[in-house]
């Protein structure tokens, strides 16, 4: 092994905190590889890039990344990130958390940040369960799957996350699985260089809890399932993106549009109201540090 070669993800990690707490076959680390490469490709100024997480397995991502890392309270990464971004719009603020954190306890914050078109990239790793607490039912849990808190099978309707993000006004929406590493990297890169509320769902294995409890094998079995059962449909109608128990998963880039971000809309309004005496609030970079 050559000593000169460096893993391309290393510069983005707090190496002294390795190994991660993630289980063998968990996909969160895979998504982090894509994220690190996207950061390189998007040429983000890392000094001006902050990562904010809530609580849970994916919530640990912020603390493993060698960026300004904020590991906040359960469900509240988005409102924390909102304050951070509004206080210093020059920062690139990325929220990285799980579906239980962002969509259950944090669901209210998610829909309102999307509605406001807050200038945030939200990466949601969806593994269909609460992993950190031991395999409870989550807001994306598919019908029929069993959980410690749904021992006789989930019967609630799960969220279709791209549709939720789309209908609340997100300007960029995509979904990939951890099998689709190149596509996921490309979507992350695109999203990093766009302004407004951007949402990427990453379907990921949870071998220890979701797979095992539902007799779906290990992480590799989940990855093989994603390979065999995913259907790429860029531009698909987000209403058609429900995920059932072991049903085919539609992946792709679904939404890419523009509308004024929160600060842009505020500046427009206040300039109309106050006239030229109004000094516009700084709007920050268009994603990659270069004003578009």
């Amino acid at each position: 092994m050559s000593d000169t070669a460096t893993n391309p993800v290393n510069p983005y990690l707090r190496l002294e905190r390795m190994p991660s707490i993630w289980c063998p076959g968990c996909g969160i680390g895979t998504s982090v590889n894509c994220f690190a490469r996207a950061l390189t490709q998007a040429k983000l100024d890392l000094k001006m890039t902050s990562i904010v997480s809530g609580i849970g397995c994916t919530g640990r991502v912020s603390g493993y990344m060698s960026l300004d890392s904020f590991h906040t309270t359960h469900g509240r990464a988005i409102p924390f990130a909102t304050g951070l971004k509004l206080a210093n719009p020059d920062l690139n603020v990325i929220v990285y958390s799980g579906e239980g954190d962002l969509m259950a306890i944090g669901g209210n914050h998610f829909i309102h940040a999307a509605r406001r078109n807050m200038d945030l990239l939200v990466v949601c790793v969806n593994n269909f369960t609460y992993g950190m607490t031991g395999g409870q039912v989550s807001p994306t849990s598919p019908g029929g799957a069993t959980y410690t808190t749904a021992p006789f099978g989930q019967f609630e309707e799960p969220f279709n996350l791209p549709h939720l993000a789309d209908s609340c006004g997100a300007v960029y929406v995509s979904r990939w699985t951890t099998f689709h590493v190149r596509q996921l990297t490309k979507s992350m890169r695109e999203a990093m260089t766009k302004k407004g509320f951007r949402f990427i769902e990453v379907i990921s294995p949870c071998p220890t809890l979701y797979q095992r409890r539902n007799k779906l094998g290990d992480g590799l079995d989940a990855m093989k399932f994603y390979k065999e059962s995913s259907v790429v449909k860029n531009g698909a109608d987000t209403r058609d993106l429900n995920i059932g128990f072991q049903t085919p998963i539609t992946v792709g880039n679904f939404v890419n549009r523009s509308r004024p971000s929160f600060i842009e809309a505020q500046n427009k309004r206040y300039t109309e109201v106050f006239g030229p005496s109004y000094k516009p609030y700084p709007e920050g970079p268009h994603g990659n540090g270069a004003n578009a």
Binding site: F80, T82, G83, L86, A87, F274, Y281
Partner: peptide, 30 residues
């Protein structure tokens, strides 16, 4: 808004009470 500051009405008090902490780590008094 007319002194270079930022006010945001959040979706609830849970959000309001952490949004200000994000702003503090962004450098503002909040």
């Amino acid at each position: 808004p007319r002194m270079g500051g930022m006010f945001i009405q959040m979706e609830d008090e849970i959000a309001a009470s952490i949004t200000l902490q994000g702003a503090v780590w962004g450098g503002k008094k909040a």
